[in-house]
Design a protein around this nucleic acid. Structure first.
Lengths: 216, 216
DNA sequence: TATCTAAAAACGAACGTTCGTTCATATACA
DNA sequence: TGTATATGAACGAACGTTCGTTTTTAGATA
């Protein structure tokens, strides 16, 4: 296959027409799937929102599930979340944790679809695509945890590092889930201070039980 | 396909015929919904699994959503979970937390459907039925937290009690979610000891930072 | 206990609709 | 001009629901 050059393209997008439509379809699908679930979304809805005729979708995707797979792998909001987890910040362990949590919060609250896509994956696909997603997450989570251990502030030795990282992610996750489930029913205060309190609970468990010299 | 009822509802002669089939329908629906989601489950599947003709369902329910509502309110696994949360145990705060978590773990691991139903509720119904469910949970969670404060072992004063309880529930919840998502990908050790470690993280956040005990 | 009977429940074909997908055809682009 | 893309009607299957009918149930009568 020859690589089409077309260096004289006047328009700014280096994307071909087909690639642009493809991205439109993925964008529409992401929005609809995360809103109504996979089985609750029809191809006609995707076509309408993407501004394309129904049949045209099949010029870009073999079938409905191929669209979901593409959304999962190419446009999954996890990609916007990971940088938030990774970004360097905080001199001490406590600062790093709090700031990491806060960044994840800010990112996640702008991407409601993130939680939804994970739920779809779990519920409607039984985690079918998770190995692929996980392959992207894992190395970065490892590097995040490595960086943690380099901060001043000791970690408990009776709890493995991966468990600590998983618990951190899990707490942030359940923070959002809880708000979604019971947010209108029970008042736990302003989100940001709630998250800080939760991270306080997390923090003082991953430090030695009897205080090392650190003071916050 | 296979007609298997009687696992949860044996042929109880005290119930009228109609009530028995109604329970069969709810049981089949619970299983199917939690497996494939709401939109992913057809009335024919429900009828088959319940061992009843398609049309017969409508002698007991107005429509499909009425079945889901009935599952939510009458047969929701939350009802098997709450007693586990409540059961009295442990003399100290630490014992009570660990044992409560362990009981919830044992209950939840026998009811995979619990997590699923909550996900369906969140994703496909946007939490429509949660006010009703929450009304059942709330008083019991309050009494649980009250009992916590009566155990020997102090609680931090800079974090509200409801936040502590919500975090506890959230951590157990995310413990299951994490296993579901990444259980086959990452090894965090045997579930029971993992849960203990997570609860260790939780515990040493809700106690005073430097262990001096005076309160209440 | 045996018989009768109205209501409840079960049945499965059929309805109208919507589903995912295909197709022949038209248009746009390189 | 030839290929990629767009179109929307059409397809068969599956969807939730309805319907007329038959069977079962449970209480009243005897």
């Amino acid at each position: 296959m020859t690589i089409d050059q077309t260096a004289a393209t006047p328009n700014e997008p280096s994307l071909s027409k087909g690639e642009r439509t493809r991205k439109q379809i993925i964008g529409a699908a992401l929005e609809l799937f995360s809103d109504q679930g996979y089985h609750g979304t029809s191809m006609r809805q995707v076509a309408d929102l993407a501004g394309i005729a129904l049949g045209g979708i099949y010029n870009h995707f073999d079938n409905k599930e191929a669209i979901f797979t593409a959304v999962t792998l190419e446009s999954h909001p996890i990609h916007t979340l990971l940088p938030a987890l990774e970004a360097e910040s905080g001199d001490t362990l406590e600062e790093a944790i709090h700031q990491s949590a806060e960044r994840m919060y800010e990112t996640l609250s702008q991407r409601e679809d993130f939680l939804n896509l994970i739920l779809i994956e779990t519920l409607e696909f039984n985690g079918k695509h998770f190995p692929d997603i996980f392959a992207q997450i894992f190395p970065r989570a490892v590097s995040f945890s490595k960086r943690l251990t380099e901060k001043p502030g000791d970690l408990r030795e009776d709890i493995p590092l991966p468990v600590m990282v998983a618990t951190f992610i899990g707490m942030i996750f359940s923070f959002f889930l809880f708000q979604r489930l019971f947010g209108t029913q029970v008042d736990l205060g302003e989100p940001k201070s709630l998250l800080r309190q939760i991270m306080e609970i997390y923090l003082h468990g991953i430090q030695p039980q009897i205080g090392e010299g650190d003071r916050r």
